[in-house]
C-alpha cells in the first residue's frame, strides 16, 4: 500500500520540510537552555546564538554557593515524586483490581463519579486545602502546611482519580479465564491479586509510575504554597525562585540547574519510550 501511495505522491519533500521545521521548533528552547548554562553573563542567551566563552561557573555555583541548596531541592523532589508515584500507583492498582474483577454494590456509579472527579485538578480547591492543612498543622506540626509530608498527603488525594481508570482499562484486557482458573484452584482474591495480576501488569505499572513521577516533579502550585522554607523546596519551586524575585533573575544558574535536573528525566523517558508510546497510543485506541 505504501508503494502505491508514494507513486501517487512522488515527492515527499513537504514532509521533510515540515518535519525539519518542527524539529527546529522543538529543539530551539533546549539549545537555548544548554547555551545559557555555559554562558557567563547570567542572561538567557544574550547577543549571540553561538557560544563564545564557555564557562562552567553556573554549574559550580549550584554546588558551592551555600545560599543555594540545589542538591537539597533535587533530593526533595526525588523523594516526594518517588513516594507519590509508588504509593499512588499502588492505591490505583488496588482500586482498579476491585473495579475490574470484584462485584460490589455501587461499582458502576463509583466509576462514573471517579471519572468526573478526575477532571478536577485538586489545586482548584487550593484555598480550602490551605485552610484545612493549617488546622492539621495546629494538631500535627509534621504533616500540616509547610511540610513535605502534608504535601504528599494532598498529592495522594488525587491518586485514585488519576490512575484508577487507566489501570482498569489494562486489567480489563487480561482474560477472565485466568483468575477463574486460579479461583478453582482455591486461590483467595488477595492471592490472585498479588501472584497473578501484579506480574502481568508490570508494563502498565512502569508507565503510570513514570508518568506520576514526572507529574509530581513538575507540580508547582501546591508545592509553592506548601514549601515556603528555602531548604524544603522542590526543584520546580527552587528553580522558579532563581528567575522570580528571590535570586534576582539568575538565568545562568537556572539554566544549569535545569540541565542537571532534566538529563536523568529525559534519559529515563526516552529509555522507557517504548512503554510510554505504547501506553499512550493504546489509550487512544481504547478510548
Amino acid at each position: 500500500m505504501s508503494r502505491h501511495v508514494s507513486k501517487r505522491n512522488p515527492s515527499s519533500a513537504w514532509r521533510h520540510i515540515f518535519i525539519i521545521f518542527m524539529i527546529f521548533f522543538a529543539l530551539f528552547p533546549i539549545y537555548t537552555v544548554l547555551l545559557s548554562s555555559v554562558n557567563g553573563s547570567g542572561a538567557l542567551a544574550t547577543a549571540s546564538l553561538w557560544p563564545r566563552h564557555i564557562v562552567f561557573s553556573n554549574y559550580t555555583k549550584l554546588f558551592n554557593d551555600a545560599s543555594i541548596p540545589y542538591l537539597r531541592w533535587v533530593v526533595n523532589s526525588i523523594v516526594l515524586a518517588s513516594l507519590n508515584a509508588v504509593i499512588s500507583v499502588l492505591i490505583g492498582i488496588f482500586a482498579s483490581y476491585a473495579f475490574s474483577r470484584l462485584k460490589f454494590k455501587g461499582r458502576k456509579n463509583s466509576l462514573r463519579l471517579l471519572l468526573l472527579i478526575q477532571v478536577f485538578p485538586n489545586f482548584l480547591a487550593l484555598a480550602a486545602i490551605y485552610v484545612i492543612m493549617e488546622r492539621i498543622y495546629n494538631v500535627y506540626p509534621h504533616i500540616g502546611i509547610g511540610t513535605t509530608w502534608g504535601l504528599l498527603l494532598v498529592y495522594l488525594g488525587g491518586s485514585m482519580g488519576a490512575n484508577a481508570w487507566l489501570l482498569k482499562g489494562f486489567l480489563d484486557s487480561i482474560p477472565m479465564e485466568l483468575d477463574e482458573a486460579a479461583k478453582i484452584d482455591g486461590a483467595s482474591p488477595s492471592q490472585i491479586f498479588w501472584l497473578i495480576f501484579m506480574p502481568l501488569t508490570k508494563p502498565i505499572i512502569v508507565v503510570t509510575t513514570l508518568l506520576t513521577f514526572i507529574g509530581t516533579f513538575n507540580e508547582f502550585v501546591l508545592a509553592s504554597i506548601f514549601l515556603q522554607e528555602v531548604k524544603a523546596r522542590t526543584v520546580a519551586v527552587g528553580l522558579e525562585s532563581f528567575v522570580g524575585s528571590d535570586f534576582g533573575a539568575n538565568w545562568g544558574a537556572f539554566a544549569a540547574g535545569s540541565v542537571i535536573a532534566a538529563i536523568p528525566l529525559v534519559t529515563l523517558f526516552l529509555s522507557l519510550q517504548r512503554y510510554i508510546v505504547g501506553g499512550v497510543a493504546a489509550g487512544s485506541v481504547k478510548g
Binding site: 476491585a98 478536577f120 485538586n122 488525594g157
Partner: peptide, 26 residues
C-alpha cells in the same frame, strides 16, 4: 465479607479527605 472494600479503602480515604472534603469546604 467486603472484599472490594479491602482493595478500595486506602484510595477512598485519601480521595475523601484530600479531594472531596476540600471541594465541599471550598
Amino acid at each position: 465479607k467486603p472484599v472490594a472494600g479491602k482493595f478500595l479503602l486506602p484510595g477512598v480515604v485519601f480521595l475523601i479527605l484530600f479531594m472531596i472534603v476540600p471541594v465541599i469546604y471550598t
